[in-house]
Simulated scan of single mutants.
Amino acid sequence: MNTFPLTDTDRAILSELAADGRLAYTELAARVGLPVSTCHGRVRALEAAGVIRGYRADIDPEVTGASVNALILLRVLSHERDGIPALAEQLRRVPGVQQVYLIGGDRDFVLHVACASVPALRDLIARHIGSNPALAQSQTQIVFDHFRGLSPV
């Protein structure tokens, strides 16, 4: 993977877009102190370099009825390690899964899940985690609150 050298202006643009990806170029340019055409060109360059991967709606799971958030740490059986990419894809498709992280250490994955209730969380674990023959162990942590970092990079 190639890296893209970020200027302070690029970082300012990324910070503003991370906070509000729907900013009009005129507003973005004003916030970062650039002419609109220059700002537009910098954003296009960041997109072309893959720094900006896309723009998404930030949906609040709690507002949609999924008020129980949890982190589930998973260990893959040693003889199933070759199947980790396929397993990651399978885990991404589990209803309620918000994020899948492949990690180092004594666990292999961390799943961030959002469910309607603790019984729904228990059901998700039973159906998709506990019954998966590739998984050796799981540990579930309920999330009480989430504080998003302020740095976009």
Rank of each mutant, 00 (worst) to 15 (best):
P35Y: 00
T64H: 10
V43I: 14
A49L: 06
T64M: 12
A57D: 06
G33K: 03
L34N: 01
E47I: 14
E47A: 07
R56L: 10
S37A: 13
D58T: 07
L46F: 04
I52A: 11
P35R: 15
G54M: 09
V36L: 02
T64N: 06
V43H: 01
R44A: 12
E62M: 04
E47R: 14
R42V: 02
V63H: 09
G50Q: 11
V36G: 00
V51A: 04
R44H: 12
G33A: 05
G41M: 10
A49P: 00
L46N: 03
P61H: 14
G54E: 11
V63M: 04
V43E: 01
G41K: 15
L34S: 01
V36M: 03
E47H: 08
Y55M: 12
L34F: 00
R53A: 15
D58A: 12
I52V: 15
R53P: 04
V51Q: 09
T38G: 07
L46Y: 10
G50L: 13
H40L: 11
D58L: 07
V43C: 07
R42I: 01
P35V: 11
P61M: 09
G50T: 08
Y55G: 07
R53Y: 11
A57P: 02
V43Y: 01
H40E: 10
G50D: 07
R56A: 13
R53I: 15
S37D: 09
V51S: 11
D58Q: 11
I59K: 05
H40G: 04
P35E: 11
R42N: 04
V43Q: 01
L34Q: 06
A45S: 11
T38E: 15
L46H: 03
P35K: 15
A48M: 06
V36K: 14
P35H: 14
R42T: 02
A48D: 13
A57F: 06
I59Y: 13
A45I: 04
G33I: 02
R42C: 01
R44C: 07
H40T: 14
V63P: 02
A49K: 09
Y55P: 02
I59S: 02
T64A: 07
V51T: 10
T64L: 06
P35T: 02
S37N: 13
H40V: 08
G54K: 12
D58E: 08
A49N: 03
R53H: 12
V43A: 05
D60C: 03
A49G: 08
A57C: 05
L34K: 02
H40D: 06
I59H: 09
A48Q: 14
E62N: 06
G50S: 07
H40N: 13
R44S: 13
C39F: 00
T64R: 07
R56G: 05
I59V: 10
I59Q: 04
T38P: 00
S37M: 12
I52N: 07
